[in-house]
């Protein structure tokens, strides 16, 4: 039986391969494909680099949070990474238990903060809507009334001046 893996099949098995958990019967065909396909070979190399970088054994100072890792996980959680970075982090969290734990913890805190925020909102009892709109209208009313009074005074003054002229010259 001559099995030839497609690139899609390689994609689905890549995680097991990296972890060394690929079934021995499939390993030969997996490696055969990698020999012939530079694209898949590059994918495996890139993923291996990411895993190696974040592997627990390569991060002896785990008690100090890895700022870069947290930064990327934080941006991943906010959906602010570009597609390539997104996929890298997603794969890394699947394969690295430490990163996965950190991400899960971050989601828990997110939920806690949202619960606190919702409680703050729900505990508020005031309603400023009527008073704000009333203040807005008062301001307009005041300006309109003031303007109207000025116009009336001006017209009266004009009439007085014209009457004065008529009286003087006639």
């Amino acid at each position: 039986m001559n099995i030839q893996f497609t690139c899609n099949q390689i994609e689905s098995l890549i995680g097991y391969f990296i972890e060394g958990k690929l079934a021995p019967s499939l390993l030969e065909f997996f490696n055969q494909h990698l020999k012939k396909c530079p694209k898949c070979r590059k994918k495996v190399e890139q993923l291996q680099k990411v895993i190696t970088k974040y592997a627990p054994e390569n991060n002896p100072h785990e008690s100090k949070p890895d700022k870069e890792l947290i930064g990327n996980l934080s941006a991943y959680m906010d959906n602010e990474l570009d597609t390539g970075e997104n996929v890298k982090i997603k794969k890394m969290t699947i394969l690295n238990p430490n990163a996965r734990q950190k991400l899960e913890s971050m989601y828990k805190f997110k939920k806690l903060m949202h619960n606190a925020y919702e409680k703050t909102k729900n505990d508020t009892k005031f309603d400023y809507s009527k008073s704000i709109v009333a203040t807005l209208n008062e301001g307009q009313g005041y300006t309109t009334t003031y303007f109207r009074n000025i116009i009336i005074l001006f017209v009266l003054l004009l009439i007085a001046v014209i009457t004065g002229f008529i009286y003087l010259y006639f």
């Binding site: 925020y117 703050t120 709109v133």
Partner: peptide, 13 residues
């Protein structure tokens, strides 16, 4: 008025 009613709790929080 309704818009203010909808957003005021968020603004406060």
């Amino acid at each position: 008025e309704e818009l203010i009613r909808k957003v005021q709790k968020d603004v406060f929080a």
